[in-house]
Structure formats: structure tokens, C-alpha cells
Amino acid sequence: MSGLILSNVTKQFGTFTAVDDVNLSVPDGTFVCLLGPSGCGKTTLMRMIAGLDLPSTGSITLGGEDITEVPTHKRNLGMVFQSLALFPHLTVGENIAYALRIRGVDKADQKKRVDELLAMIHLSGFSDRSVNKLSGGQRQRVAIARALAISPKLFLLDEPLSALDAKLREAMQVELRQLQQRLGITTIVVTHDQREAMTMADTVVVMNGGQIRQAAAPVDIYRRPADSFVADFIGSTNLIPFAAEASGRATLLGASVDGLQLGTAKTGTISVRPEDVQLTAPGGEAITGTVTFIRDLGGTVETFVEAGGQQIVAVSSPRDRPVVTVGQAVGIRLDPETSVVLAK
């Protein structure tokens, strides 16, 4: 078995269960994002992979070798910390060379590798600078280069871009993904930013309450959320409770609707993305609602509709904006293709 495999990993701090029976398999060369709200256990999970925390139970193997109890410094990792953790007493070059220096690599080879890495992160000539004199983006790159100095088997990044401003963050996401694809290194990133996860990952692992709620490709996470937490956490969505009737119909939003593939559940919730909600003229098969608010954001228009005591949001581009005003009655159509029945 190759790759990184977590089996039944649990971590307890006193009576608090930070990570609850997690199973995850990360094939070699893939880019995985651990995504979830703060306190969901994603950082603890990464710290256990790094050996900075020990699992209470369960095991971790890497490349077929059990590394559960192997001390951090013998795991041959590269890790980028949220604080970046650049050594303030060392220069840029010394920071990058650190892992090589303590392994006794000779000076000339250290320098060659440092120059290589500096070129890779577009900071050639910065070797003798103090790390305290760098900009946020430059510090970020130095931390990445430092973690990659020994060409590690596993590249871990804990909220690596959280300190950067929005524009720089988006640019770095693309850069990081391209770098990972070029090097083909198994990479795990912890983030609470879903855009970041969607941009970079081969597999997004959504966590909540110490458990993995769904692990899938970004587009599947978005299109086929496994449960209401995932649906709500990734992008925005309309969560609509339903009750199944006989003959394939269902009651939702105070109306009886036909044609939705609701499976065998008697009651449940469906998730419909705002861009999949179609507003039409009222009447016929459409669900009837009343427009309560219109938010025109320039690039998109959000129409808030109240139907059956619940608020539904529809998003459209300005070109397709529905010709409605607040207080007007409208019809809502749900497409069976994009209405996802969520697991309980």
C-alpha cells in the first residue's frame, strides 16, 4: 500500500474529542484539502500526520510503513505553519538551508540547493536578507521553499495563506497548485476557505465536529453534497425540507411538487443551489412565493422569495434577471437534476 493512510484515527484532549474515528486514504502525488470551520479537528488531524500530536487510538501509515509513533523529526516531512514559523535569527538562505544543515549536507551543496529553491520561488538574490524584512507574500514563499528543501515525501500546509490579503491569496493558490503539479508531491493543506480548497485540491475533505463529512473532488462536493452541513458549508444553498406523498409527489414549500427524484425517504431535506432556482410567472406547476428583497451586486442579482414560510434565494446574472419587484408574486421551479436529496 502506498500513499498516506489514516485508519480509525481518534484524538482526545481530556474529555473533548478533537478528531473522531477518521479514515482517509491519500494516494501518492495528490493534493488534498482538509476543509472545515474552526474547531472541526482539521488542524489536529494534520498535526497527527506530522507527529506533533499523537493519536489517542488508530494508526497512520506512509508508503506502507507505520509512522504512528515515529517522532516528527524522523518523518522526512515538509511543513508550512500558519504563523510560517520562519526562524527570526536566521537569514532567508539559512532558513531554507536549515533542514540540509542539520543533516550535515556540505556547504556547497546547501548553497546550490538554496539557489535552486530561491529561483523556484522567484526570490533569487534574497539569500542574505533578514526574514523580518520581507513582505507577507515573500515570507510565504520562503516558508514553502524551506519546507521543500529536502524534497519531502509529504508536504503539509496549515492555513498557509491566511495571513495574506485577498488578492495575493488567490494568486498564491494558483501558484501553489502549479508548483505541486510540477513536483508531483503528495500535499495536504488545512484551510477554512472553501474557494482555496476548490481552487487547489484534487480531493476536498470536509470536516465537522472531528469527523469527515465528505471526501470527494471539488465539483462533486459542490454538485453532490453528502449532507446538509456540506451543502451549507460549501457555497450557499437553499435547504428545503420535504415530505414524500404517494405517487412520487412531494410536499415542499407549502406546495405539492411532482418529478423530483426523492428516493425512498418519507421526509428529508433537499439542497438547491441559488443559481439553480428558476423564477417564473406564478401558476401552473410552479411553487408560489412572494419577492421580499432584491440585492443587485452588479455581477449577480440575488432575489429573495418567501414561499411556504421559508426564504428561498435565487441568483442570476444581470442579463437574465427576473423582471420582478418587491411584493410581487412569483413562481419557483426546481430542476430534478440539480435538486440533491441530502443524507440525514
Binding site: L52, P71, H73, L77
Partner: peptide
């Protein structure tokens, strides 16, 4: 001392003694 500095040193292969000499003592 920011503990993440020490953890960073550990992820890069430094054991207790090496961390003391290369990170803790200078700081």
C-alpha cells in the same frame, strides 16, 4: 519562544538537542 518555531525545526528533522542548539539557544 513561539512553539511553532520549535515544531517547524522538528518537521525539518531536528531532534531535541539540535533544536536546543540551533533554535532555542539563539532565541
Amino acid at each position: 519562544i513561539d512553539r511553532s518555531l520549535v515544531e517547524a525545526a522538528a518537521t525539518m528533522g531536528a531532534g531535541d538537542r539540535v533544536i536546543f542548539r540551533t533554535v532555542v539557544l539563539p532565541l
